[in-house]
């Protein structure tokens, strides 16, 4: 590859990255709007309705407000780590999108070990939280960071086991191949044969992103705002962005692994990117619904749910799956014939 070809390749790749990142940022902005509208509707309020038509410009106003605010660095904090922590939490949240297949052909990096890559990157997000909590040099932030670390480590195991179940039936670590293994109709998608794993995966995903009802890392009533209590302005906005990008990520992964990605639910409609986005929006709605419905878990109950309920469920279901694959039970488990 010559120098100019290399340069061209670089420019094209950067453009592709922007093609993913910019819509993702817009989605994050309007996810906050959707969240406030949905929760408003659930609580019989109107939600934001002042800025622009029906409040549609509210996210823009919020972004402008955060941009113009001062970024304060506490005197006794570890300055370098304090400033790098938001980046540590945002970078993995964005980088994981590189391997997400939006349709049969639209994928930035068609990596063989795509699922492992996503798992590795989502597990890195915890560093932003831990480093922020420690660098702030505040007890509240530190408690939030500790809670978050323990919670993420606990739920990552359940999540990983749930994904092992997907690997067993799809026989591939490539996210595109996982979707292709679900071809057929809505009943061929993995949510049906792997229903317990689907539930475990999604609830673990909610816990991993520190969303309600698992948001003890923020826990306003106990530790003010948790790990980001000392952050203001854009530094805070980056944590916020990372949280929402991770939410969309978890929803998208659930769609790819259990709901057939870009595949259409019925044979007579064409497959396409539209289905992927529609299903992701559907899964995202659950995040908002959970937040409006459930009270926050007590911390020891979160730990109990992760270690004593979810992990045993996944292990039991993996054994069931192994037996089903051994007995070639169709249409999901007869993968050995290929």
């Amino acid at each position: 590859m010559g120098f100019f070809e290399g340069l061209l390749f670089l420019i094209v790749t950067v453009l592709k990255v922007l093609l993913i990142i910019v819509p993702l940022l817009l989605t994050v902005a309007y996810l906050t709007y959707a969240e406030r509208k949905v929760i408003g509707a659930i609580q019989v309020r109107k939600g934001p309705n002042r800025v622009g038509f029906a409040g549609l410009l509210q996210p823009i106003a919020d972004v402008l407000k955060l941009l113009t605010k001062e970024v304060l660095v506490p005197t006794n904090s570890h300055r370098f780590l304090f400033l790098i922590a938001p980046i540590l939490s945002l970078a993995p949240a964005f980088a994981a999108w590189a391997v997400i297949p939006f349709s049969d052909t639209a994928v930035l990096a068609d990596v063989n070990a795509g699922l492992l890559y996503v798992l590795a990157l989502t597990s890195l997000g915890v560093y932003g939280v831990i480093v922020a909590g420690w660098a702030s040099n505040s007890k509240y932030a530190f408690l939030g960071a500790m809670r978050s670390a323990a919670q993420i480590v606990a739920y990552e195991i359940a999540m990983g086991f749930a994904l092992v179940g997907v690997l067993m039936v799809s026989g591939s670590l490539n996210l595109g191949d996982i979707v292709r293994a679900q071809e057929g109709s809505i009943f061929h998608w993995f949510w049906l044969p792997l229903f317990p794993l689907f539930i475990v995966y999604f609830i673990s995903g909610v816990a991993e992103t520190n969303r309600a009802p698992f948001d003890v890392a923020e826990g306003e009533s106990e530790i003010v705002a948790g790990f980001h209590v000392d952050y203001s302005g854009m530094a805070f906005a980056l944590f916020f962005l990372a949280e929402y990008a991770n939410m969309i990520m978890i929803a998208a992964l659930a769609v790819i692994m259990f709901l057939g990605g870009w595949l259409s639910p019925v044979p007579f409609l064409p497959d396409g990117m539209f289905w992927f986005f529609a299903k992701t929006a559907f899964m995202l709605f659950f995040f908002l619904w959970f937040r409006a419905t459930f009270p926050r878990y007590r911390y020891d109950q979160i730990m109990r749910l992760g270690w004593k309920v979810f992990i045993p469920i996944t292990i039991v279901w993996l054994s069931v799956e192994a037996v089903a694959i051994l007995l070639d039970i169709g249409p999901w488990f007869d993968i050995r014939k290929t």
């Binding site: 798992l119 590795a120 597990s123 890195l124 960071a145 323990a150």
Partner: peptide, 26 residues
């Protein structure tokens, strides 16, 4: 060796070092 590389990040960076930091910070 992409499998080993990603597993190194997943296991050591994503889990072991988090627990390490957990203890060291305490």
């Amino acid at each position: 060796a992409e499998f080993l590389a990603i597993t190194l990040v997943l296991v050591y960076v994503g889990a072991v070092m988090v627990l390490f930091l957990f203890v060291v910070m305490m």
